[in-house]
């Protein structure tokens, strides 16, 4: 903490010497800003609160006021003016740390959302050349898009000719999601792979018909097991009792 405080004071002093105290967005304040930005990001990552982060800046106020009093003690008007300038300056710098802190937290949230999306969409290989994508939970347009990209990439990586999209665990499907599913099937076909959609629940089947989405060209099966059997047959394989 000590060296950081010293560095901060040095940066402020340098900026204040040849700069404008009222406007901390100017170039001479860039070193101070960078310093505070690093501090805020670090503290956000370590789980400090925004108050604790801003307190780093505010804690200098007392020392500064003391110094001002000893320098202008007899001149009340100048003292009041200088105190106000200092207050304004440190409030601005303190708020700046809060702003950066918030941004850093938002970045963390976005990254976590991304990671969760990736975790929640496992593509598994059921057999050589047969992939399955068991979807669970509500599908929004954004998630569907990422899921589908992952599936298409897995098709190339595993050179899988057949992919089963199982939606048993999906409670509802809206028009946009249904269209994404269809687009995925179409894209897979362009790449030379065939998709089977399994586990369409009765309500979803009704919704799909109601929405006027045409699943005509798509192979659908009631269960993942049925779909797997079809996939095996397409590869010239069969399951037999040993």
């Amino acid at each position: 903490m000590q060296p950081l405080a010293r560095e901060f004071i040095a940066a402020v002093r340098e900026a204040a010497r040849d700069g404008e105290l009222g406007d901390t967005t100017r170039a001479e304040w860039s070193r101070t800003r960078d310093l505070l930005a690093d501090l805020s990001r670090e503290r956000a990552a370590q789980g400090f609160s925004p108050t604790e982060t801003a307190t780093f800046v505010f804690s200098f106020k007392q020392a500064i006021f003391k110094r001002l009093r000893s320098e202008f003690g007899s001149d009340a008007e100048t003292l009041a003016e200088e105190t106000w300038t200092a207050t304004e300056l440190f409030d601005k710098l303190g708020l700046y740390t809060a702003e950066i802190y918030q941004k850093a937290r938002e970045e963390v949230i976005v990254r976590q959302q991304q990671e969760m999306l990736e975790l929640s969409t496992p593509v598994v290989e059921l057999w050589h050349g047969i992939l399955a994508l068991p979807l669970i939970g509500t599908l929004d347009s954004n998630r569907t898009q990422i899921v589908m990209q992952n599936l298409l990439e897995a098709i190339v990586a595993k050179s899988a000719g057949i992919a089963i999209i199982d939606i048993t665990g999906v409670p509802t499907v809206d028009t946009l999601v249904a269209q994404h599913l269809l687009k995925t099937v179409a894209a897979a076909r362009l790449m030379g792979a065939e998709c089977i959609i399994s586990g369409i629940r009765p309500q979803i089947a009704q919704t799909i018909i109601h929405l006027g989405v045409d699943l005509g060209g798509v192979l659908t099966k009631a269960t993942l097991a049925d779909a797997f059997q079809v996939a095996l047959r397409k590869k010239g394989l069969a399951v037999a009792k040993g």
Binding site: L152, I155, K183, A187, M191
Partner: peptide, 14 residues
């Protein structure tokens, strides 16, 4: 036609 990239396929469909 063989070997179409996923990103190309997605774009073509769109």
């Amino acid at each position: 036609v063989v070997g179409m990239q996923p990103s190309v396929a997605i774009t073509l469909v769109e």
